[in-house]
Nucleic acid binder design. Structure first.
Lengths: 222, 222
DNA sequence: CCCGACATTACGGTTTCCCGTAACGTTTAG
DNA sequence: CTAAACGTTACGGGAAACCGTAATGTCGGG
């Protein structure tokens, strides 16, 4: 089992619960630390490396309240920073996010070792994950919603998200070509923009731009 | 201190932590129960009344995962139901919601006794609240964000939300009068609808319907 | 170099939205 | 009852979005 664990979680109640789970797994009090901010986390990790007692496991949330300015704003930022200074540390993400494709993306892009969504039986889930990691395995929670892929058979490209963000920010459709040409986004023609929007709406059975914006906001595409 | 407490929370990790807080306050194990669903909660409460050992305190979340169909879908539904059968029970809401005006609304409309947002020091906050309630006081967390009122000086009416929901669902502006006339919403004239939308956008400095929909989605107006 | 396939842009007609003005209806005060 | 004030609706011109089609550009293979 792990001898040194760091918990990064800005909700005290959740942090307490994670600590209890570690206790249940036989990880003693002095084997773990907890912090409320990513910036504190990276400092601790650096210090632990310097003292030749590096952490073995990182348990982190993804989103943090931005009440005080931080260099590392999200769990993703933190994991990237950790991978730079201690690439072999095991990383477990414990987040309210429950969409399988988001978890898979983290698994692939950031090479995390486990993803647990905060849900009905998340404490049990968490323990199973930690045990799996201690045995050198990866752990992908089965409480993740696979349905999202089915609900959204449509794949939004980077071009789409830029376009949708401009619309959601109030840019008139006819002015988008100006922005695209300035920022070297192609295709920049108004006609192409109209066609793309039309195609997206047809595919997703959406009948207006307002409908489309509501759709992507609900699904956190933008 | 309370002798019988019911915790309604669908995240196991949070539930565990709330229970630990109760333990810290000297409320023993057999004095409390916890459930994952609102429907289970109301059953327990009814049973407790029938057995002449009613609960004294209800600690509930607001939003629940809708994985299985429930009669009571939200904490608000639950509290309303509870107030009908046991109006004197103390009610404490423990939610991710941290906007002061939402909490105040619950305080006023549902006559809840305390509101604690899940945040950095929510466990401490929760304990303070429970102690206050045990002493017959109400407790309004000071971790709530007062800023929202300033950010949104605009007050959306019921008419506005109906209108915006129609737009967000893809109803064409020109077709909204048809819907309004059918459902006896006034004013129903296209001209009035245009004027109202225009007024909202001018007031909030929004330049298009897309912009407006993004705005209300971000602020959970609809 | 030429050609075809494809992506991108340009253009024009139609619909919808936008916005100002005027007409109509209702309520209230005198 | 009338007049004024206000809310609602009707109308019309202009702008933007929508959508089909044609023209132009781009890239690779022959």
């Amino acid at each position: 089992m792990f001898k040194k664990v760091l918990i990064v979680e800005d909700h005290e109640s959740v942090s307490i619960s994670v600590q209890k789970s570690l206790t249940d797994l036989g990880i003693p009090y002095d084997s773990r630390d907890y912090v409320y901010y990513c910036d504190d986390a990276i400092k601790r990790i650096e210090k632990a490396i310097a003292e030749n007692e590096p952490y073995e496991l990182l348990i982190t949330d993804l989103s943090f309240e931005e009440d005080t300015p931080q260099l590392l704003k999200t769990g993703v930022d933190l994991i990237k920073a950790v991978k730079e200074i201690q690439p072999k540390m095991k990383t477990l993400v414990f987040s309210i996010e429950n969409r399988a494709h988001v978890a898979q993306l983290l698994l692939k892009e950031l090479d995390i070792d486990a993803f647990i969504p905060k849900a009905r039986h998340d404490a049990k889930d968490l323990k199973l994950a930690i045990e799996a990691l201690a045995n050198g395995k990866k752990y992908f929670s089965n409480n993740l919603k696979q349905t999202v892929k089915d609900e959204t058979p449509f794949k939004f490209t980077d071009y789409d998200t830029v376009l949708l963000k401009l619309l959601a920010n109030g840019t008139a459709q006819k002015d988008i070509p100006i922005y695209f040409k300035k920022h070297n986004v192609v295709p920049a023609g108004l006609s192409s923009i109209e066609k793309r929007l039309s195609q997206i709406k047809t595919t997703l059975n959406l009948s207006s731009n307002e409908h489309l914006i509501a759709y992507v906001k609900d699904r956190k595409v933008i």
